[in-house]
Design a protein around this nucleic acid. Structure first.
Lengths: 197, 197
DNA sequence: ACAACCATGTAAGTAGTTACATGATTTA
DNA sequence: TAAATCATGTAACTACTTACATGGTTGT
């Protein structure tokens, strides 16, 4: 689980209160790890109990904004976690399930949905492009900047990956289902990926 | 949530009992939607309660293997679900969080982990390649086969995406952290993706 | 008869989502 | 002073994970 460590990292960059973090998760951080404010507040509480962060409670008791700061133990925990062995989470993709279902039960209304998703991914790609040319106009010099750029780059590649898949899907779904009549004809691979391996 | 519909689709392809489905989810289906046997049994129960599948309980009461079959209502539900509007789930990527943490707290032991993940993705890519040349030696003729091939292809692209990202990550992390000394120098983008947008 | 494994579960816990609540500041 | 919105929560629920349990079947 990454949320606590994402929060620690964010707080190392900059001390913040819950809603600050929530808005950062809606923008930069959220591009690769989403979290709602409810999750964030709950997790901040846990981090404090664990002794990884401390909060400077609202001075003089009235403004109720609670600013969190990372403690040395939190830094240590983050270091431990980063180097830890973790298996890659298997791909889990709803759209693939729907394409598979399409393949099994025949034409449905998937095409419209796919078109709108293509637009979404194009928008995001454009956004990332703007961010890249603004923040990384030249080759990053420091290791730190290079890593930041890498993360952004992986977002870009991710969007490209989706655009490629979705276009290919359109290509298949768009062709009028003329062969659908003889659908039950060649039922070659019994299941989707067959996989006798 | 896709599991119930993945199960219906699987059962349309072929009637099956819980452990059949579990093993299919460990192989073909599981390449893009993973599920454990506990999930599968629970979900099969729900599908039956909902009237989407029926189970032929073990004949004559002794063999306890329970085979499930999709009912017309289940087919209908699947059709409805496939065409339904669904927003893309945002990318949620643990490794990106760790790279980000590396960027913030400096060198840790991420490199070893990344190398081993590169190997895993290479293996999977090779596996998919074998499946592709076995099941799709020529251009698919039917819409159904084309969709199946598309799903496989997206798995391949997914693995390639990861290999590219991970190699780039190695490139950045491997270079001896000589610039790390002057790390606090240019702190240009305050947070990872800055994102004033 | 005993081991291996097949098939079906139960129980407990974690992570994440959705809906709602509430006081405190800022703005019109 | 009323409305908006900022900041912090609670409650209930769903999906998923991990660990354990148990009877039935098959192979030696």
């Amino acid at each position: 689980m990454s949320l606590p460590h994402a929060l620690i990292t964010a707080l190392i960059e900059q001390d913040a209160c819950g809603s600050d973090l929530a808005s950062r998760f809606d923008r930069s951080i959220g591009y690769f790890w989403h979290a709602t404010h409810q999750q964030i507040y709950r997790e901040l509480g846990r981090l404090e109990v664990a002794g990884w962060v401390e909060s400077l409670p609202p001075e003089s008791g009235r403004g109720r904004k609670r600013v969190y700061r990372v403690l040395p133990a939190g830094r240590k925990e983050l270091q431990r976690w980063v180097a830890e062995q973790q298996d890659p989470k298997p791909m889990r993709d709803e759209l693939m399930v729907r394409l598979w279902a399409e393949a099994v039960i025949g034409p449905t209304g998937l095409v419209k949905e796919i078109r709108s998703r293509i637009d979404l991914h194009k928008e995001k790609l454009a956004l990332y492009g703007r961010i890249e040319s603004r923040d990384f106009p030249s080759v990053p010099r420091t290791r730190e900047a290079a890593l930041r750029r890498l993360v952004l780059h992986s977002g870009i590649q991710y969007e490209r990956y989706w655009l490629e898949i979705l276009s290919a899907a359109l290509g298949v779904l768009d062709r009028p289902a003329k062969e659908c009549l003889k659908k039950s004809a060649d039922h070659a691979p019994e299941t989707l990926l067959v996989a006798k391996e």
